[in-house]
Amino acid sequence: MVKCENCGYEGVKSDFRYLYNTTLDAETAYRECPQCYAWVVVNELEEERAEKQLQRENA
């Protein structure tokens, strides 16, 4: 789960609108908090793996 450090909003990665990354191969990217619009730095691969793992466990 991604958490916004500015307002505390927590959600899955895709809840946070993708903004950009500085290089295509960078691990992290900027996303935007849906609640306060602050920029959040997200480790894309780690988050996705964690989310998929969670989905598998829930299934």
Partner: peptide
């Protein structure tokens, strides 16, 4: 133009900056 070009097979997503030159490699690539 990063918000005008959709995701591409070079790995960029909508929003990622495009390559900066005319024949420059992608940043960091």
């Amino acid at each position: 133009n990063a918000t005008k070009v959709w995701a591409l097979p070079n790995g960029r997503r909508l929003g990622d900056t495009l390559y900066d030159g005319g024949c420059s490699p992608g940043a960091g690539l």
